[in-house]
């Protein structure tokens, strides 16, 4: 099976000269379609940096990486933006636009160049919000939702445009036990239905059971690939 993400000898550092700090050292990994991969490890070990590189949010420095059939090593901002449109992102702090309703936040994911009419975009957002249990809160401002509800809106936003890859950073960190469990179950269910892989950074051992694979990071290196 052809991997969705294929990284080889990734290296990344912040700073220059004496202040230079290496974050990733010769990291290689493949992620297959439909696979749920968890990245764990201590803070500062490089998990999130890897996530931003895979998500084409940051320019690569060294190594090779193909994401969604595109080479990222020499990709310019436009090429990286093109890849980003096919990725679903879930952030730790949700990052919803507080001045938009839940459905408008979800519909945003269709992007600025969407050829779908606005009514169609909103209709699809409504359907997905219904699936995540927010069918009654479509028109509520994001700022008026609870943490768990916001994360469900964020999940809907990450999936509404049918991405080929989902990246999530600590999606349960700001949620209570029940909300976190619900969010992860929802994420797994929707990802399975749509067949797209999920790369998820987490410290939350409560959700380890959803993973097909857990990758442990330390000091910028993959220490121990574990099959869940």
């Amino acid at each position: 099976m052809k991997p969705i993400v294929s990284a080889h000898d990734l290296e990344f550092a912040f700073g220059e000269g004496a202040t230079r700090r290496t974050i990733l050292r010769r990291v290689s990994l493949d992620i297959l379609p439909g696979e749920i991969v968890l990245l764990t490890g201590p803070s500062g070990s490089g998990k999130t940096t890897l996530l931003t590189l895979v998500g084409a949010l940051r320019k690569m420095q060294a190594g090779r990486m193909r994401v969604l059939d595109r080479e990222l090593a020499d990709a310019d901002e436009e090429a990286r933006r093109t890849i980003r449109r096919e990725v679903g992102y879930i952030f730790q702090m949700h990052n919803l636009l507080p001045f938009l309703s839940a459905r408008e936040n979800v519909a945003l994911a269709f992007g600025e160049n969407s050829t779908l009419p606005r009514t169609e975009r909103l209709a699809r957002a409504d359907v997905l919000l219904g699936e995540v249990g927010l069918g009654q809160r479509l028109h509520d401002f994001a700022s008026s939702l609870s943490g768990g509800q916001k994360q469900r809106v964020a999940i809907a936003r990450a999936l509404v445009h049918q991405p080929r890859l989902v990246l999530a950073d600590e999606p349960t960190a700001s949620l209570d036990k029940q909300s976190g469990h619900d969010a992860v179950r929802l994420l797994r269910q929707l990802a399975r239905e749509r067949g797209c892989p999920i790369l998820l950074v987490t410290h939350d051992s409560r959700i380890f059971d959803i993973a097909d694979r857990i990758i442990h990071f330390e000091d910028g290196m993959i220490v121990e690939p574990v099959t869940a």
Binding site: F91, N95, L97, E112
Partner: peptide, 18 residues
């Protein structure tokens, strides 16, 4: 006040021009 949200828009594929 909305810098994070603007960055989020960029992250999900919106251009700086937008």
């Amino acid at each position: 006040n909305h810098l994070t949200q603007y960055a989020t828009l960029k992250a999900i594929g919106y251009s700086h021009r937008f």
